[in-house]
């Protein structure tokens, strides 16, 4: 068949103008399907008529605006009606996306808030933990110190409460009549404890020095701390066969031999 003659016959125009019988219409549709030229020609005719009408429509007075309002009302009403009986599926479909978006947004905000909260909590707890650890270390050290102290005290108490221990009071000499000190001497256990019961603070540049006097004369037992507390109990070196204990006031650092003119207190070990 001659395609050009078919296109020029005017049947395509009448097809677009909807002025063909159903048989003729179907024939045109068959040709349009088979031949791109026919399809393109139809589109061109449509386009021309469209422009013709749209331009004339624009030139004519515009349709009344209330028509749009009424139609929009109708459209909204229709949508509200169909939304109701549409049931769960369509409601879920139409409602799910904004709801989902909101749910996700809220979940995200909550998650961020939770993370921030947990982080700050963890930071606070971390600080508290390190403080506690420090405290624990201090307490452990204290505890150890106290345990040792206690052990010393127990040992001293054992000495004090031992029946063999002799309690020697060193009485004040002429130089210091009110001064007192106490020595606990146990020749069986071989232990000596000393307590400055009442010794005034030594003058500047001076220190108290403790002596044990035996068959060989005065033996140095060491100098006392300048700020020694009265009532404290000191372990001192044990010497066997001590006859008496004495304290002299010496120059700071002590001396190998006592200056007996500076005798402060003295007590004899009884038999």
């Amino acid at each position: 068949m001659d395609l050009t003659a078919y296109i020029n016959s005017g049947v395509l125009e009448l097809y677009v103008l909807d002025r063909l019988s159903p048989d003729e219409r179907r024939a045109v549709e068959r040709y349009a399907e088979a031949y791109p030229e026919v399809r393109n020609e139809l589109r061109e005719i449509e386009r021309a008529l469209e422009e013709y009408v749209v331009l004339q429509g624009q030139a004519a007075p515009p349709p009344a605006a209330p028509v749009l309002d009424r139609v929009l009302d109708q459209v909204r009403g229709e949508r509200a009606e169909t939304a109701l009986p549409a049931g769960k599926v369509s409601q879920a479909k139409s409602g799910s996306s904004p709801v989902l978006v909101w749910a996700l947004a809220i979940a995200l905000i909550l998650a961020v808030a939770a993370v921030a909260y947990l982080l700050s909590q963890s930071q606070q707890r971390g600080e508290a933990l390190s403080q506690s650890e420090q405290r624990l270390i201090t307490l452990q050290a204290d505890c150890e110190e106290i345990r040792e102290q206690n052990q010393d005290n127990l040992q001293q108490l054992a000495v004090l409460s031992d029946a063999e221990t002799r309690n020697i009071v060193l009485a004040g000499s002429e130089n210091a009549p009110d001064s007192r000190a106490v020595v606990f001497y146990n020749p069986v256990a071989g232990q000596t404890l000393f307590s400055p019961a009442n010794l005034p603070a030594p003058p500047a540049g001076k220190q108290y020095q403790l002596w044990a006097i035996d068959a060989n004369g005065p033996q140095d037992l060491g100098v006392l701390d300048r700020n020694i507390a009265s009532g404290s109990l000191l372990d001192v070196a044990y010497l066997p066969g001590v006859a008496a204990f004495a304290i002299t006031l010496e120059d700071e650092g002590g001396k190998p031999q006592p200056d007996l003119s500076q005798l402060q207190v003295i007590g004899e070990v009884g038999t």
Binding site: E50, V53, V54, G57, Q58, P63, V67
Partner: peptide, 11 residues
């Protein structure tokens, strides 16, 4: 309505 209301109204 805006683009084709006039043309449809004309028809």
């Amino acid at each position: 309505f805006d683009h084709y209301g006039g043309a449809l109204n004309l028809i």
